Simulated assay, not measured.
Amino acid sequence: MHMTWKKAATLALKFAIPVAIIAWLANHIDWAQLSAQPKDYRLLACALAVAMIGLSLSFARWCLLVRCQGIALSMVEAFRLGSIGFLLNFVSAGSVGGDLFKAIFLAKQRPGKRIEAVASVFVDRGVGLFGLLLLVAFGLMLVQPSQSTEIDREQMQQIKAATAILTTVGTVVLCGLVFGGKGVDRLVRWGSQLAIVGPVVAKIGPPLRMFHAHPIAFLVSIVMSLGVHASMILSMYLIACGLYSDPPTLIEHFVIVPIGMLAAAMPITPAGLGVYEATIEWLYRIVPANPTSASGTLVALVFEIVKVAMATIGTVFYWTSSEELRESVEEAEEAEDGDEHNDGDEPNDPAIEMKQA
């Protein structure tokens, strides 16, 4: 009711872009060929079940990381907040909306642990991305993409180089912060005083250093991240097998799907819609050693339907939620639209801290 024309235009644009991309991609699908071949609906049902297992594992990972920050959180509450957060990812650019909501609500529930609450969500996202990078690196080691054109070869080489650099840097930084001694603490304090990267170091460093007391839990969270992404990859592979007789192999999907997920994580469209499909379609053309008739666009679209089906759980939780939880959702939406402000009364506003991070 209070939506301004600027908010309305922004919201319309958020959804218009992915719809246009998906419409363009769908126009290039051979629907006649798809309808003519048999489909295995049992595999499609298994794909939904496997994706649900992966999503549940991601909620459990966040619960573990929250507890490592010294915040009490039950597994049931983690699943409730995680489900609503997953739902909110579909109405925000990229996948930030759900993270904002979880940070805001958790910070309100634990006023003395605001920084830790924001940090738990930030670390959860970082651990997830690191696990994704590990899977991309693993897949690229096992698969040699066919790379049909010079441009494709060059782009794949760039992806390999970027993956190697990011994985190496991420491993060194995480190992130093989690397993390092007092010298690392001094380095974090020094880095927090630097001009450009100082604020970022000040926000990321201390929360990650808290895992120095929980190294086993941190390693478990990384293993859980691998399990989350492996479940999503297997779900995509089952969808491809359910729709086509000659899809890319499971190992090839370990290259295709993580790269697509990394592209979808960029804050361009709601839940990465459109960007994800376009990336998967491109990778379906250049990665498989044997040419496939499978449409990466269609497989990705069906996977998006699976995600929407999982998001309905968040809808149920939202309908039965408390007023405080609904207020946190509204605050997260306002923060996404750039309407949040800090008037000086709350210097540690979780919405502002999360957006800055």
Score class of each variant (00 low, 15 high):
residue 67 R to Q: 11
residue 107 A to W: 11
residue 226 L to C: 05
residue 284 Y to P: 00
residue 347 P to S: 04
residue 167 T to F: 15
residue 40 D to V: 05
residue 199 P to Q: 03
residue 251 I to H: 08
residue 295 S to C: 00
residue 279 T to A: 10
residue 337 D to Y: 10
residue 127 V to R: 02
residue 217 A to E: 14
residue 23 A to E: 02
residue 193 Q to A: 09
residue 233 I to V: 12
residue 302 V to Y: 09
residue 170 G to D: 10
residue 315 T to C: 08
residue 103 A to E: 04
residue 147 Q to L: 15
residue 113 K to G: 12
residue 246 D to V: 06
residue 337 D to P: 00
residue 132 L to C: 07
residue 317 F to E: 14
residue 290 N to Q: 10
residue 103 A to G: 11
residue 337 D to S: 07
residue 38 P to Q: 02
residue 319 W to T: 04
residue 271 A to N: 14
residue 141 M to Q: 08
residue 78 A to E: 08
residue 218 F to Q: 08
residue 143 V to C: 14
residue 176 G to K: 10
residue 268 I to N: 01
residue 119 A to V: 04
residue 250 L to M: 06
residue 81 L to H: 03
residue 110 R to N: 11
residue 188 V to S: 00
residue 295 S to E: 04
residue 57 L to V: 15
residue 204 I to Q: 03
residue 261 M to I: 12
residue 9 A to N: 08
residue 308 V to W: 09
residue 57 L to S: 06
residue 171 T to H: 00
residue 280 I to P: 00
residue 204 I to C: 02
residue 148 S to W: 08
residue 338 G to R: 13
residue 235 S to V: 11
residue 116 E to C: 02
residue 267 P to W: 13
residue 14 K to W: 06
residue 333 E to S: 05
residue 13 L to Y: 02
residue 90 F to Q: 07
residue 2 H to T: 13
residue 115 I to Q: 15
residue 258 P to F: 02
residue 185 D to H: 12
residue 179 F to L: 15
residue 183 G to T: 06
residue 175 C to W: 01
residue 10 T to M: 10
residue 207 P to E: 14
residue 310 M to H: 12
residue 281 E to D: 11
residue 149 T to D: 04
residue 103 A to C: 14
residue 233 I to F: 00
residue 318 Y to M: 14
residue 67 R to F: 04
residue 307 K to M: 10
residue 50 V to H: 07
residue 301 L to S: 04
residue 122 F to W: 07
residue 230 A to Y: 05
residue 276 Y to L: 03
residue 210 M to F: 02
residue 351 A to S: 12
residue 338 G to Q: 05
residue 209 R to P: 03
residue 42 R to A: 14
residue 231 S to A: 13
residue 187 L to P: 03
residue 243 L to K: 02
residue 302 V to M: 15
residue 243 L to G: 04
residue 18 P to M: 10
residue 146 S to T: 13
residue 158 Q to M: 14
residue 93 A to L: 05
residue 154 E to N: 07
residue 261 M to K: 01
residue 251 I to L: 10
residue 98 G to A: 12
residue 331 E to A: 15
residue 211 F to A: 02
residue 320 T to C: 15
residue 278 A to C: 06
residue 183 G to I: 11
residue 205 G to T: 06
residue 139 G to F: 08
residue 308 V to F: 04
residue 209 R to Y: 11
residue 149 T to N: 09
residue 60 A to Y: 13
residue 34 L to A: 01
residue 344 G to D: 04
residue 313 I to H: 02
residue 78 A to C: 12
residue 313 I to D: 01
residue 82 G to M: 09
residue 135 L to C: 08
residue 177 L to D: 00
